[in-house]
Amino acid sequence: MTHEVRAVVAVEKGAPVEVRTVVVPDPGPGEVLVAVQACGVCHTDLHYREGAITDGFPFLLGHEAAGTIEAVGEGVTDLGPGDYVVLAWRAPCGACRSCRRGRPWYCFDSRNAAQPMTLPDGTELTAALGIGAFAEKTLVAAGQAVKVDPAARPEAAGLIGCGVMAGYGAAVNTGNVGRGDSVAVVGCGGVGNAAIAGAALNGARKIIAIDVDGGKLDRAERFGATHTVNSRRTDPVEAVRALTDGHGVDLAIDAVGHPETFRQAFYMRDHAGVLVQVGVPAPEATVELPLIDVFSRGGAVKSSWYGDCLPSRDFPFLVDQYLHGQLDLGAFVSETTSLDGVEEAFAKMRRAEVLRSVVVL
């Protein structure tokens, strides 16, 4: 049996997205069919539309999603119809060399659904990040569907599936922020603000938000920033040093992924401080640093993949923090829209008018 649903498709590079009929199969072994309730509009979806990730057009977009299990395939025993889930774009295999070494967050063989979703003429769609959730229903590997408390509103909970997890995990999992630490976050979009929230939840004493947009800096204070720096008006490295008695921060997070923001984050660290890059750089981007500075300043330079998260562990925890009033996921939601509003949501994203638009189905 198959299901014909409405979904958002990027047909060709740079062209506006289209709402099309998409054919979703019943789940096979190890797969689940999910009725999508909400899905955030992430920059990654725009990158797919613009051909900046792969050229596997047409794409079925959407990946920051929450919904309910509608059907499960053979061999799926820990999920059932009606279960409320957040979708993850990494599902550890449990068997690769990283999983066997106890580092499943670096899994080298992450699971996706084996069956493709298609257009009615049989054209196979590439599901964005293996999910494709700008759709009334989607098909994913069972390991991608993480059961969470159904009390969480789907438009908020779904954001954990990408941007919130990436930023929170960059601070907590990759950066290992702790009580009393000082933190600087360069770039205060969804990922940067999630890093700020994570640092605040883990007891950072001083959290400095840095951006070129005053409105974004105002929002950063809502997520826990204790100080803000407008890097359009002042040198952010000097400003951070002035706020830290000339020393720099224990943890600097680059949530932009541009060579200049990487350099800024590198130099705003204290000696032996940590730099975490979570912003995704352009493929052609390069950075040059004096090797003596890399050596003499010590510390660590790390990249953060999906916040180095383990979805089965971290998603339920973050939902619980939301329900207990410790993590304001609702503050990430600037507006809700429909499948027909995705292209306009991309335009608002480019104009920096929203933190997150969320498609509600």
Rank of each mutant, 00 (worst) to 15 (best):
E18P: 03
P259H: 05
P236T: 12
G82C: 14
L79H: 10
K348R: 12
K13V: 10
E18K: 12
A204I: 08
V287S: 13
T44V: 12
A127I: 04
E344M: 09
G178F: 05
D320Y: 03
E155Q: 13
P16D: 12
W89R: 02
A300H: 08
D340C: 09
L60M: 12
E353I: 10
A156P: 02
R241C: 10
R241A: 14
L87A: 01
D254Q: 09
R222T: 05
K302F: 13
P27A: 06
V280F: 00
C309K: 00
S182P: 10
F59R: 02
T21D: 09
R356T: 03
G215T: 13
V278H: 01
A225P: 12
A282G: 08
H63F: 10
Y306M: 08
T123P: 13
R269I: 08
K137P: 01
L329N: 02
E238V: 15
A242G: 14
V164A: 03
R111A: 11
T226K: 15
P283Q: 11
G14H: 06
A272M: 14
V76T: 06
A170P: 00
F59Y: 09
A252H: 00
T234G: 02
Y322M: 12
T138D: 08
G30P: 01
G132T: 07
S338D: 13
R103S: 04
T138W: 11
C39G: 04
W105F: 15
K302D: 15
E18W: 03
F295W: 08
G203K: 13
Q321M: 14
A239H: 01
P81I: 07
S182I: 10
V34S: 03
D320C: 03
V185N: 06
E288N: 13
R100W: 13
G51I: 10
V19Q: 03
